[in-house]
Amino acid sequence: MSIASLFSIALGAILVENYVLVQFLGICPFLGVSKKTDTAFGMGMAVIFVMTIASAATWLVNKFLLIPLELEYMQTVAFILVIAALVQFVEMFLQKSMPSLYQALGIYLPLITTNCAVLGVALLNIRADYSFIESIVNGAAAATGFTLALLLFASVRERLQFADYPKAFDGFPIALVTAALLAMAFMGFSGLKVF
């Protein structure tokens, strides 16, 4: 586990295996909070925060609880439980000790408790057999990729307000067309390999 392999994991998670545009995880917030760039940014920051700590926590739960007890098949349920409790705990902790951060993330934190991208990163970390450090890097990088996709998409949607597209496409249809074009653009990274 060298710095180079961690960098490779991070770059892969941000661009090549982008959670939203390539693996289609976390589509709900991708469409839901992408109308303005500042809300998209707030959501992105909350996702980075939660995904990183969720990766760490679920790795520990898997390693020291599920594997010794031979309960790996209960991963999904156990992870949902752990992530939900963790987010609740962090929210309470932030409200008490860091009110300003709580104000900034406040609305978005509970929203992503059961986000499939968060659960996805936990499960994929296990499937890829990552170590503890690798899991955390992968979680943070995947969330960064999520934020990148969300910000790009929100910027495009802001511009769309002034675009002259057919009326029948108004609202979600044009958003989905945009998302498809973005996803195709990200396909360009598929051959990218650092090491």
């Binding site: 007890l69 309960l71 439980l81 409790a85």
Partner: peptide, 20 residues
């Protein structure tokens, strides 16, 4: 096992809600 895990986490949250 999962019930116990849930109960422990619930307890932690209950304590935390009082603490914080």
């Amino acid at each position: 096992v999962l019930g116990l895990l849930g109960a422990i986490l619930g307890l932690v949250l209950a304590v935390a809600s009082k603490l914080f």
